[in-house]
Measured scan of single mutants.
Amino acid sequence: MASQGTKRSYEQMETDGERQNATEIRASVGKMIGGIGRFYIQMCTELKLSDYEGRLIQNSLTIERMVLSAFDERRNKYLEEHPSAGKDPKKTGGPIYRRVNGKWMRELILYDKEEIRRIWRQANNGDDATAGLTHMMIWHSNLNDATYQRTRALVRTGMDPRMCSLMQGSTLPRRSGAAGAAVKGVGTMVMELVRMIKRGINDRNFWRGENGRKTRIAYERMCNILKGKFQTAAQKAMMDQVRESRNPGNAEFEDLTFLARSALILRGSVAHKSCLPACVYGPAVASGYDFEREGYSLVGIDPFRLLQNSQVYSLIRPNENPAHKSQLVWMACHSAAFEDLRVLSFIKGTKVLPRGKLSTRGVQIASNENMETMESSTLELRSRYWAIRTRSGGNTNQQRASAGQISIQPTFSVQRNLPFDRTTIMAAFNGNTEGRTSDMRTEIIRMMESARPEDVSFQGRGVFELSDEKAASPIVPSFDMSNEGSYFFGDNAEEYDN
């Protein structure tokens, strides 16, 4: 783990906690998980779902989305002020799938948001429990990260689609708070800032007046979040320049895209947490497990152990491969979309394939898809080993990566060399080191050039047997250095459309 220093740990961010010791953190995270579980059980009762239907990941996603929508204050306010045809701002819903006479049927349900809020609060001892809501947002974000390569979004903001390893959390809503900021990748933060800068260039009043003052505060806050992700002084200094700019424009845009590229080699610290679907927490609570009393951590053995003992089902389209669908969801559960496939294969105990080789589309089923041909199958979400999630980018030494994705962002704290394609990355730096950030740029390029592919990161860190909950005997895996390590390699994943 990167030293926490003055930073709060993510469990504290996750639970809005002030400084807590490890036991208190485990208890408050457990409380959050228990609340999600209780809410899910109650919703299944309301909807009269069978046990099997309640364990269907598509039903879980609909129920999670309903509660997130019920608590989305800004959108609710907007919907009330701008009524649109056929949208009731006070209601929320989605597809629920039921097994009827041996076939899967889709039923569109509609609930009062007020009623959903009441059920959620009741499951969370009367609190709004925003930490639990954020947790579900991060699960949705991790699922998107594993399912889609955001080529269009990258290109629109002047970045290269091969930089997708920097895009963790790119679909997280803005209201996801400190826990959300911690899991956002460098590219995601750059993209958010670039969008602001572009608006400022096109709209003279963007930075002016009372609204402009708020915009400015948001801009500086985002700059500080991004600065905190960088691990070298030169990158941090460049972020200070971007933040202090009187009138952010093209120079800042250039600096930010430069920094994003540099992060492929001088990786930023991005938190990883295993956020599971509500249909995993519900049955665990129903079986009598007391998360608050037992304590829970999002970055240790607990999620692995929970998945070892969970039964989750998914709808499967006619030509999809259930094992591939399982891999997709497994990666999402562990926030591992940008991790090295060699490491993932070792931990999972079966070969993890790149996205383009998977015969599976996303987990969600569109409303126009034919239910007649839908089957369902068990998702295999178990693992051979477990490993500690990392909050750091690993040290800054790398190795060759593949054509589709030119770097990785480690999820697990496991000893290995970190793949990246130096030639491709360095070719993108057209040696432009003039301007006010020239000395920093020169320094950053120097550090990137001296990074050695064969150097090892996370020295001495290994994986653990599932029986080793105290992480007492690390097993340090050895990897084939020459092997392909990137998930979005030469990829044809669908595009994420909101």
Rank of each mutant, 00 (worst) to 15 (best):
A251Y: 13
G200D: 07
A146Y: 03
Q405E: 06
M189I: 14
T130K: 13
V183F: 09
E465Q: 11
W386A: 12
E494Q: 08
D421Q: 04
P474M: 09
S9F: 04
T45W: 11
S326A: 07
A123Y: 05
V280L: 11
C164M: 06
C44L: 12
E252I: 02
I225D: 08
A233N: 06
Q149P: 04
N202A: 15
K31E: 09
A251M: 05
D160V: 07
V67D: 10
R422N: 07
P277H: 11
A332K: 06
G102A: 14
L166N: 08
D145A: 10
D72Q: 04
N370G: 15
R446W: 09
I475P: 05
L154H: 10
K184V: 11
S450Y: 09
P322G: 11
Q241N: 05
G300M: 09
Q241V: 05
A493M: 09
K214F: 12
F464S: 06
I25Y: 06
T437H: 06
G30C: 03
H334G: 01
K273V: 02
R38C: 10
T373I: 14
S9Q: 14
K348T: 03
G209A: 09
L298D: 06
N144E: 01
F338S: 05
P474I: 02
A22C: 00
F71K: 14
W207V: 10
L264E: 10
H140P: 00
T62G: 15
G431Q: 05
S335M: 03
E18H: 02
R355K: 11
M447F: 11
L306T: 15
A218V: 12
R446D: 13
T433Y: 00
G35K: 06
K351R: 13
R8Y: 01
Y496V: 14
L306S: 10
N432W: 09
Y10C: 13
E14D: 15
R261E: 08
S287W: 01
K48Q: 12
R174A: 03
G362Y: 08
H135K: 04
E18V: 14
R118Q: 04
S482F: 06
H272A: 01
R199T: 11
D88P: 02
L68G: 13
Y289H: 12
L358Q: 05
V190D: 02
S50D: 14
V363D: 10
N319E: 00
S413N: 11
P419A: 14
G132P: 10
A286T: 13
I25S: 03
T442G: 15
L154K: 01
G228A: 13
Q415V: 09
G462E: 13
A271G: 15
M32H: 12
M105C: 14
W386R: 10
L49Y: 02
G187P: 04
R199E: 04
A260R: 00
T6C: 06
S467Q: 13
G17H: 05
V194T: 15
R99G: 09
R38S: 11
K198N: 13
A233K: 06
I475V: 10
R305L: 10
T257K: 06
N144P: 00
Q4M: 11
M163H: 02
R121T: 06
N144W: 04
I365C: 07
D497K: 00
M222L: 09
R452H: 03
E495V: 07
T378D: 00
G30P: 07
T188S: 12
Y78L: 02
V186K: 05
A284C: 00
A146C: 08
F429V: 03
D128I: 13
S297K: 01
A22T: 12
R121F: 05
G490L: 14
K236R: 15
Q415G: 07
M196E: 13
N397A: 11
D127G: 12
G132C: 11
T257G: 02
A286G: 15
R246P: 09
P248D: 06
N498F: 07
L108F: 13
M32I: 10
E210K: 11
G35N: 12
R75N: 07
L47S: 01
R19E: 02
D421G: 09
L110C: 11
Y10P: 14
S9I: 09
S310R: 06
